[in-house]
Each structure stands twice: as C-alpha cells, then as structure tokens.
Simulated assay, not measured.
Amino acid sequence: MILGSAANGFGWRPNQWVLATRPTFVHEVSGFIDWFQKTKTPGRPVKVAMFTTEASPTFADMGKGIIAYAKANPNVVTLVEMVYVEPQPADVTLQLRRVLNAGAEVVLVPSNIQQAVAVKRAMQTLGKNVPIVYSLQNSPAMLQKLLGSLSAMDGDYEVHAGVIATDEDTEAKKFYDMLVAKYGVKAPWHSITTIGINQTLVLVRAVEAAAKKNGGDKLTGEMLYNTLIETHFPAKDFFGFTGGGDIDFSVEAPFPIKDPRVNIGQVVGGKLTTVARGVPVPKLAKW
C-alpha cells in the first residue's frame, strides 16, 4: 500500500509493507523550524509553541517527536510549551495567551482542522499576529471557508513534503491542468487533491519499473514491493508532487529518509504563495 500522507514515528520500523511518500509529520515540522530559524532568527534559537492532543496516536506522536527535536537542537529552537488540548477544543484562548506571554514567535498546529480553527480564533480574540503553521490536511485552503477567507490567515504558513496548491505557474500546476484538460479530472486544485496525485505517481513509476524488469504480464505485489525498495526514483519523475525530494524507500523505514524535503507556503495579501521550495529536512534520531 502506498500512502500520500505523512508517516508516523511509531511506524518507523524495518520491513514495513505500507509505505508513505512523505516523511513523518515531525520531519516536516522540523524542516520548517530549521528554515524559519535560519531565515528569520539567525544567530539565536526561535521560540515556538505547539498545539496537539494526546487523544490520537498520530497527534501524540507529533508532540513527542517535536519535544525530542527541540531537546536535541537547543541552538535552533526553544520549545516554550507543548500544549495538549482536546481534538475538537471549544476555546484555547487561555492556552494561547500563556504561550504568547512566554515569548512564542511561532505557533505550530500540524494536527487537525478543529484545532487549527480554535487556535486561529484565539489569536484573533487576543488581537495578536504571531504566525501559525499548519500541515497539509489542515492547510489554509482547507480552513478558509471556516474562517471566512484566506485573508483571515495572512502571515500564516503551511509546510509539508508535497505541493503548495497555489495559482502560481508551477510544474505541478501545469501537470494538474493537463489532467483536467485531457482526462477530465474533476477534483479541485487544493492540497488534498495533490495527495492523490502524489501517491498515484509513485505507484505508476513503481509499476513502470517493475514491468520493465519482469514483464507487464507477470507482476505480483511482491515484485512491486521489491521495486519500491530497490529503486531510487528521482524527484523529476514526479512533477513537483513529492516536495522536491527523491523517493528512495528502504527496508529500514517506511518513508523516504535519505533526502526528504518540504515546501513552505504562506498567506500573503489574501493569497497563498510558495515562499520556499525543496527545503532540506534535518536528520532526526528516532523518538
């Protein structure tokens, strides 16, 4: 099975059969932190807070991983607080006020749509403009109807090892437009659609490589698995849908770990823009 979702740290074990085309959420978020510190706060660690929940294994894993990353990289990041709240919090104004008063310069909310909306509304209630960082599944495009418009998120970011679904004339957007024009794709151009294209392209490349080696009429699931493990697929084969990184699975991890990269988007003037492409993700130890 091939997943377009980010991976989980608790799934970071050898000999897996479910392979994610993106590294873990922690890899993606740490890639953003590393980029932000280098570009916005050079010479000192950036102060961050993060909202997540312990009610979900995936979201609890994000918290555990970022705590470990911050502990291992004190020159890059100071974790003001890891804030655990309900999966669908009614109000987080008190928690947000606390971390902002403690000096948080970035607020990470890579979890779900409900938490992202709650943190944004709390930010509005407090009259503050500290940037919030979202992931792909709760990106600004996914939040705009709930918050009124993209303009409500001016200054906020999204980060992941996938396409930032902007209106910019990118290779990925051209490929999507071709699918619409020639093959009648009905899915709108937004982050969730890019996941589907991402994982489909990886599957197609695996089938191509396996068929070339074994013959198209002889393929088995095991052959496809071995092809995914043994073949290094360059980023250029995926039209930008892998965040600029190669796909290089191994038996050691169920996601690419040799050179994972992320794209970073930001809402500026009511429009989503790409502010950084192919940002290298720092090497992480298992948490």
Score class of each variant (00 low, 15 high):
Leu3Met: 09
Ser5Gln: 13
Ala6Ser: 13
Ala7Leu: 06
Asn8Thr: 12
Phe10Ser: 07
Phe10His: 14
Phe10Leu: 12
Gln16Arg: 14
Gln16Tyr: 00
Trp17Ser: 13
Leu19Thr: 10
Ala20Leu: 00
Arg22Val: 00
His27Pro: 03
Ser30Thr: 15
Ser30His: 05
Phe32Asn: 11
Ile33Glu: 03
Phe36Pro: 05
Phe36Ile: 07
Gln37Asn: 13
Pro45Glu: 06
Lys47Pro: 01
Val48Trp: 00
Ala49Cys: 09
Phe51His: 05
Thr58Glu: 11
Gly63Glu: 02
Gly65Asp: 10
Lys71Ile: 00
Lys71Gln: 14
Asn73Thr: 12
Pro74Trp: 03
Pro74Asn: 05
Glu81Tyr: 00
Glu81Ile: 02
Pro87Lys: 07
Pro89Phe: 04
Val92Phe: 01
Thr93Asp: 02
Gln95Gly: 04
Gln95Tyr: 01
Gln95Lys: 10
Leu96Ser: 08
Ala102Thr: 01
Gly103Trp: 01
Leu108Ser: 11
Val109Met: 00
Pro110Trp: 04
Gln114Thr: 11
Val117Trp: 02
Ala118Trp: 02
Ala118Asn: 05
Ala118Phe: 08
Gly127Arg: 03
Lys128Phe: 00
Val130Met: 06
Pro131His: 01
Ile132Trp: 00
Val133Ala: 10
Tyr134Met: 13
Leu136Pro: 00
Gln137His: 02
Gln137Leu: 13
Pro140Ser: 04
Met142Pro: 01
Lys145His: 13
Lys145Asn: 15
Gly148Gln: 06
Leu150Phe: 07
Ala152Tyr: 03
Asp154Ile: 05
Gly155Pro: 02
Asp156Leu: 10
Tyr157Val: 06
Tyr157Asn: 08
His160Ser: 15
His160Glu: 11
Gly162Ala: 14
Val163Glu: 03
Asp167His: 10
Glu168Lys: 09
Glu168Asp: 14
Asp169Gln: 11
Glu171Phe: 01
Glu171Ala: 15
Glu171Asp: 13
Lys173Thr: 04
Met178Tyr: 08
Leu179Asn: 10
Val180Trp: 02
Val180Met: 06
Gly184Thr: 12
His190Ile: 08
Thr193Cys: 14
Ile195Tyr: 04
Gly196Lys: 04
Gly196Val: 01
Ile197Ser: 10
Asn198Cys: 09
Thr200Lys: 05
Leu201Phe: 03
Leu203Ala: 13
Val204Thr: 14
Ala206Glu: 07
Val207Ser: 06
Glu208Cys: 06
Ala209Arg: 14
Ala209Lys: 15
Lys212Phe: 02
Gly215Glu: 13
Asp217Tyr: 01
Lys218Arg: 14
Asn226Trp: 06
Phe233Ala: 12
Ala235His: 08
Phe239Thr: 01
Thr242Cys: 13
Gly243Pro: 06
Gly243Phe: 06
Ser250Trp: 08
Ser250Leu: 08
Val251Tyr: 08
Val251Gly: 00
Glu252Tyr: 04
Phe255Trp: 11
Phe255Arg: 04
Phe255Gly: 05
Phe255Leu: 05
Ile257Tyr: 03
Lys258Arg: 15
Pro260Glu: 09
Arg261Pro: 05
Val262Glu: 07
Val268Ile: 15
Gly270Ile: 07
Leu272Asn: 07
Val275Glu: 03
Ala276Lys: 09
Val279Asn: 10
Pro282Lys: 13
Trp287Asp: 12
Trp287Cys: 06
Trp287Met: 04
